[in-house]
Computed example of a mutant assay.
Amino acid sequence: MRRPTIHDIAREAGVAKSTVSFALNGQPGVSEATRRRIAAVAHELGWQPSRAARALSGANAEVVGLVLARPAGLLEVEPFFMRLIAGVEAALGADDIGLLLQVVGEDPAHEMEVYRRWWGQRRVDGVLVADIRVDDPRLPLLAELGLPCVLLGNEVPGSGLTTVGVDSKAAMVAAVAHLRALGHTRIARVAGIAEFQQTVLRGQAFAEAAGPDAVVVSADYSGERGAEATRELLTSDRPPTAIVYDNDVMAVSAVGVAAELGVDVPGQLSIIAWDDSPLCRLPHPALTAMSLDIPGYGAAAAAALLRVIAGERVPDTVFGTAQLVVRGSTAPA
């Protein structure tokens, strides 16, 4: 079927096209009764505003964007982003704002091209920016474009961009303190992507809290790399008695590797996961985890972005600190 136009609405309502335009754009010069009648006809015909026309008029797109520079295969099994997006959608839906999601693989340059295109075509009113990196090349571009944004990360001095983050350092200190209280001294960490801001912050806290025998192996949040790192640690000359994982997918994979190598969890190896998705309750034993309200985090970031889009000066905020949830995967050394 042909898409209904303002001309169709004007014919059905018995008014001029200019009257329809004034009514649908909230401009003065139209009585309230006429405005209601035109809105009813537009709804009945299924009329929607043209994206191109809205861009030319300078009107808001009523859409915000989120670009994920991650492998599509990882997103199939990584619960974090689905929970984050659920929170974002809950906050945006209350204001009838849409979310435009694009997955671009592991190429930050591709992500930057998406921002240029979206903003040039006025397809979005603003963006949420995930996976903040050290010396992140996206941040100068976003500032140069003037694209309203909120960074899902901790404060970046000098960027001039609003951040909504979590206290990664305090959470890591709590995780290590739990293991030390159980008598563990050989504690290892399987870390996320090395250049990510949160990986660096957790690393600083881990180095300070875990002691001189601490070991860190870098991974990429995938189950495959998490399993490889676990096998590397458990077959080393001085295997750790406890390992902290930077996400739940890698921690779940570790349980299988430990069983394969004949290492009892938690009798010989204690495991702490991050993010505490339902995955953490599937293995036996269930995984001790650092738990954060991820949907709430997404909703808080989306709410901050809507304020930035509205022209407000929004201060950097810390949403919260992940809390330790003790289950069966940790025990005395």
Rank of each mutant, 00 (worst) to 15 (best):
A188Y: 01
R70E: 14
L201C: 05
D293T: 09
R225Y: 01
E12D: 12
A40K: 11
I309E: 10
A194T: 04
A301M: 12
A207K: 03
W47A: 06
A181N: 07
T321D: 09
V255W: 02
F206C: 07
L101E: 10
A53H: 08
E12R: 09
Y245D: 07
P140C: 12
Q197H: 00
V77Y: 00
A181T: 11
T162I: 03
M82K: 03
Q48L: 14
A33S: 14
R186W: 02
R83D: 11
D293K: 07
A177W: 01
R189N: 09
R117A: 09
R54W: 03
S270K: 06
D8M: 13
N25H: 14
R11S: 10
A254P: 06
A52T: 12
S253L: 05
A207E: 14
D275E: 13
Q268V: 05
S218T: 09
V20I: 13
F206P: 03
E12W: 06
R327D: 14
S270P: 04
L261P: 01
P285T: 09
L100V: 09
E78W: 05
V164Q: 03
G311Y: 08
P283N: 12
L279M: 14
M172I: 03
L261T: 01
V215L: 13
V249S: 00
P285V: 12
G223H: 00
A259S: 14
L84I: 02
S277G: 12
K169Y: 00
